[in-house]
Amino acid sequence: MTTISLTINGRPQGPVAIRDDLTMNDFLREVLGMTGTKFGCGAAQCLSCAVIIDEADGTSATMPTCIAPAVSFDGKAIRTVEGHARDGRLTPLQARFIEHFAFQCGYCTPGFLNEGQVLLERLEKAPIARADLERVVAEALDGHLCRCSGYVKYHEAVRAVILADPARYLA
């Protein structure tokens, strides 16, 4: 057993004592009841369980929770699908996902949303050329599996957010 504390969607959680072999996915879903983060494969193959880790240096990355021990998140700050909308307002990415019919069953959506959000924040810091947009979006999302949509509309929705604000995301 190890006692951990962490920040989820800006709110402190813990200290809480957990088994060392408990996955982060089970910590979120079974211990905290935060089921917005999904369980898909348990093998880091589908990434429906990915959350955002915000590093101290200001960078962020997604990480699958199904293959990571919860204890490795001690002291970390993470964001989950439940934390994107603020003050009753959806983020532009959330809104575009809905408008573009990006998802169908929606089970992979939390992973795609987190991945897309991290990409947007990365491009804000390091804008890319318009000519690279399709490739960069495709590379960013390729780890995520979706069985319903054929992916096209997810990619369209992410690109739509970027193209709606080129000054922010494009060099």
């Binding site: 072999d21 348990g42 699958p64 021990p69 590379e139 780890g143």
Partner: peptide
């Protein structure tokens, strides 16, 4: 940049999975 090794591969084997 989109999928770094360390995103899944932690500092040690995690045998439960």
């Amino acid at each position: 940049p989109a999928l770094r090794c360390a995103r899944c591969h932690g500092p040690a084997n995690f045998d439960p999975v």
